[in-house]
């Protein structure tokens, strides 16, 4: 009972500290903006640990964070193998193929306003569908290894990316296009100098949405069949063996990989679209 009371006390103290920081001038400094969510995150971990240990929740239902950290440290080799299989082979190759294909398709389609008008509603409709469902079909077609995962990822990222790029290519204003025309710029010059740069905020929006979709697609596709490594395989087999600490360790790796991937794309976005109002500090 003591641990439960202690964790609740810690929670109240952290809440009080956060409220104080948020109300003070410190909150406006970069350090303050980092401190408040950090305190909140640590509080969640402490309360989780305290409640699980204090209430004696069995490890097969919810392992405490310390056990997850131990498992993570003890099985780095296995987790690294899973990471390479799912993320480097499946996700990244599928992401590159899918986004690249969608980008080129968008540029090709954009030359015909008729096709654009037809493709935008269809594309945004398909983007809302549960495309994850094609995972079993892709596993049937491309086998158990990473190729089928990459195929699922391609199908998942294609339409969100296509819709965003097509919308982005329309972002340049008629006034700006007219200016290019008065300078006698050709189609390709207009595309490269004006329309593609103007489309970049939309393109990166599509790229950022696709990072999450890609990882989800690769992991869920592994539930339908995989060689004996991969994050989705690890999660489904360890759930079956009730090795919940290993499952959580895999989720930590997936979360870190997903956040790092997203962060990388967002960082590149900041570099490329530095001129856009949303990037102003």
């Amino acid at each position: 009972m003591g641990l439960v009371a202690a964790s609740i006390a810690f929670w109240l103290a952290a809440w009080w500290a956060n409220a104080r920081i948020a109300g003070s001038a410190f909150a406006r400094t970069p350090a303050g903006r980092l401190a408040v969510p950090a305190i909140f995150g640590i509080t969640v971990l402490v309360v989780w640990e305290g409640l699980v240990r204090g209430l004696g929740v069995p490890g097969v239902i919810l392992p405490p964070p310390s056990a997850i950290a131990q498992r993570l440290a003890a099985s780095t080799g296995v987790l690294w193998g899973d990471f390479v299989q799912t993320f480097v082979k499946g996700t990244l190759s599928g992401y590159a193929i899918g986004c690249g294909a969608a980008f080129l398709t968008a540029i090709a389609v954009d030359r015909s306003p008729f096709l654009t008008r037809g493709l935008l509603p269809v594309g945004s409709f398909v983007a809302a569908l549960p495309i994850v469902g094609i995972a079993p079909i892709m596993v049937m077609w491309f086998g158990f290894d990473w190729q089928s995962k990459a195929a699922v990822v391609v199908a998942m990222v294609f339409f969100p990316m296509l819709v965003n790029t097509v919308a982005g290519l329309r972002a340049a204003e008629p006034m700006q296009r007219d200016l290019m025309r008065t300078w006698g710029a050709s189609y390709w010059q207009t595309l490269l100098r004006l329309r593609l740069p103007a489309a970049m905020p939309f393109v990166f929006n599509g790229l950022k949405i696709s990072t999450t979709l890609a990882l989800i697609g690769a992991i869920v596709a592994e539930f339908f069949g995989s060689p004996i490594r991969g994050m989705g395989f690890r999660i489904s087999t360890e759930v079956g063996r009730l090795g919940l600490d290993m499952v959580w360790a895999t989720i930590v790796v997936a979360a870190l990989a997903g956040s790092a991937f997203y962060g990388l794309v967002a960082w590149i976005e900041g570099r490329v679209t530095f001129w856009h109002p949303s990037q102003r500090k």
Binding site: I216, V220, V239, A254
Partner: peptide, 14 residues
């Protein structure tokens, strides 16, 4: 940015 869907099977089994 976290593939939340990945923990779905665990939630079900737990």
């Amino acid at each position: 940015t976290i593939p939340i869907l990945a923990i779905a099977p665990m939630i079900i089994v737990v």
